[in-house]
């Protein structure tokens, strides 16, 4: 069997007595698009932080193409080809949109080449008119796009998206779903999202987190029919 792109073995994160993530075994194939769902506090963001080196796991391992990255630094993991768009847009607020993208592009391109890459990316995320504005002055939705542009500009192998559709209008959600599918043609993705419509638009395989553990992993239609998932997640919404 081929080596998976990403694999976690008994991955665990304890904060004091709280088990945020507990014995998670997760496998992602090359080029796969996976959705992660689960109620608030299920451990999805903590899981992402361990994958990107922002948190060091209490136990267990993270393997990227067979290489153990559980204790690697965030910048080393980024250089291996994992990019992340965090839940709250994590951008350079005090700098222009162009400079934001340039900082990302210049990590892999020479200074001269980077400028061309920046122009392409600005066109792709539709922010050419806003290129010279400070990112901190943009609307939430636009800052999300800036962060997506930043992540794409480093040309990663695997992209983690933490709630990419949060706070977006219906059209923006559709545009984002389209972009996610387009990205998936060349890259693997893990997407955390609450918006079930969005999940339906993009997902094939879905992993459900609950209380720090993997509850179930299945094709999207089966997940949406699964009574257990309804109970912990959808049921709660329906009841509310």
């Amino acid at each position: 069997m081929a080596v998976p792109l990403l694999e976690t073995r008994d991955l665990t994160m304890h904060f004091g007595g709280v088990r945020a993530v507990h014995n998670v075994n997760f496998t992602l194939a090359e080029g796969e698009l996976r959705c992660l769902i689960g109620p608030n506090g299920a451990g999805k963001s903590t899981f992402f932080k361990m994958l990107t080196g922002q948190l060091e796991p209490s136990h267990g391992r993270v393997l990227f193409r067979g290489r153990d990255i559980s204790h690697a630094h965030a910048h080393e993991i980024a250089r291996l080809g994992i990019g992340i768009k965090t839940q709250v847009p994590n951008v350079f607020d005090g700098l222009s949109v162009r400079e934001n993208i340039w900082l990302a592009a210049s990590r892999i391109h020479s200074v001269r080449h980077a400028n061309g890459v920046v122009d392409e990316m600005l066109a792709r995320i539709g922010l050419i008119p806003a290129a010279d504005r400070l990112v901190g002055q943009l609307a939430h939705g636009q800052r999300q796009w800036v962060e997506l542009g930043i992540v794409l500009s480093t040309d990663p192998v695997l992209i983690l998206l933490d709630e990419p559709a949060a706070g977006m209008t219906h059209e923006e959600v559709q545009k984002t779903a389209e972009l996610v599918r387009e990205i998936n043609r060349t890259k693997a993705l893990i997407v955390v999202e609450h918006d079930m419509q969005f999940i339906r638009m993009i997902a094939k395989q879905v992993t459900v987190f609950n209380q720090g553990r993997v509850l179930v992993e299945d094709a999207v239609e089966d997940i949406l029919r699964n009574p257990l998932v309804r109970d912990i997640y959808l049921g709660k919404q329906a009841a509310a």
Partner: peptide
């Protein structure tokens, strides 16, 4: 943090 996540 962002700089780090970009690989710097």
């Amino acid at each position: 943090r962002r700089a780090e996540l970009l690989g710097y």
